[in-house]
Design a binder for these strands. Structure first.
Length: 285
DNA sequence: ATGTCAGTGTTCCACTGA
């Protein structure tokens, strides 16, 4: 089973590119971030024509996460337990957190085969002195708590968190010179500690061992891509039961090229699975 | 050069977010 994550930066702008890529790369399940639309605005036809079903969590023009899958998805979950909200208490039509703040569309869980997958768009943080920064850290702490709870109940669950974490865990993940220690988000010690806490909760980066080098995001500004001044901020973090089944991984850097690319590229893993696999050798029959 | 994108409303530009 081939599983991928991609911050598409507006699915309405990127639909042709994304569906072409899904088909060309033989992807079974794609978690998307920053779809930037509501379900009624999502270009479902192009996906369905290519054989993909959709689960969509989008509230407005900001954020938004989704799954496209050609295998059945079940147990769809918007958000996660204790997910914090942010902003002013809303007037109407919002899910609220425990403090009465609106919960943004940043997390979506589905189960495919026996694998529990989450598409995550971690808050950006904006700047170290912005309230969004504390929101980011709280959001990550609650995510860690949710992972702890999930794996305490099911230690051998094949679980993967995948998405745009807006954290560069290692100095080698930072090639963009506008991100500087002490002044920038994405690289601050508390953010890196929050990422490490996810690892301590029982998740591991299943891509880095197979793809030790390379970024997943390059800012549109300042020739960041031609200069290869990017960041590695998109990850697939798997439980031991997930990680043990990973057979391949890739960062599709070429998707940053050509007409109207997203500023992020897809990250892909292949895992052993009983369902699917028309390209698996038939050892029976 | 605060530089490029995307979405929306205040709509053919200005704003917000990343």
């Amino acid at each position: 089973m081939r599983i991928a994550t991609w911050n598409v930066n507006s699915i309405r702008t990127r639909v042709g590119r994304v569906v072409d890529w899904l088909v060309r790369e033989d992807i079974d399940v794609l978690g998307m971030q920053e779809i930037k639309c509501r379900p009624d605005q999502f270009p479902v036809e192009a996906f369905e024509h290519a054989g993909y079903d959709l689960q969509i969590h989008g509230l407005n023009q900001w954020n938004g996460v989704a799954f496209a899958s050609r295998l059945p998805m079940r147990d769809v979950e918007k958000g996660f337990p204790q997910i914090p909200g942010f902003g002013k208490p809303p007037v109407i039509e919002h899910d609220l957190d425990g403090a009465g703040l609106p919960v943004e569309a940043r997390a979506l869980g589905v189960t495919v085969d026996d694998v529990r997958l989450y598409s995550l768009y971690v808050p950006n943080g904006r700047s170290l002195d912005d309230p969004h920064y504390l929101y980011k850290l709280d959001w990550l702490a609650k995510l860690r708590d949710a992972v702890n709870g999930q794996l305490a109940a099911q230690p051998d669950l094949a679980l993967a968190l995948m998405g745009d974490f807006n954290i560069a865990p290692l100095d080698s993940d930072v090639g963009d010179p506008s991100f500087a220690p002490g002044v920038s988000t994405h690289i601050s010690p508390p953010e890196r500690a929050a990422f490490a806490a996810l690892e301590a909760a029982g998740l591991q980066d299943v891509v880095r061992p197979l793809v030790p080098e390379g970024f997943t995001f390059w800012d549109y500004k300042r020739l960041r891509f031609p200069r290869n001044e990017g960041l590695r901020i998109d990850f697939i973090l798997g439980s031991h039961a997930f990680a043990d089944r990973v057979t391949d991984a890739a960062i599709h850097r070429n998707e940053r090229k050509g007409d109207a690319p997203s500023d992020h590229v897809p990250v892909v893993v292949e895992i052993e699975s009983d369902v699917e696999d028309d390209d698996m050798p038939m050892i029976f029959g």
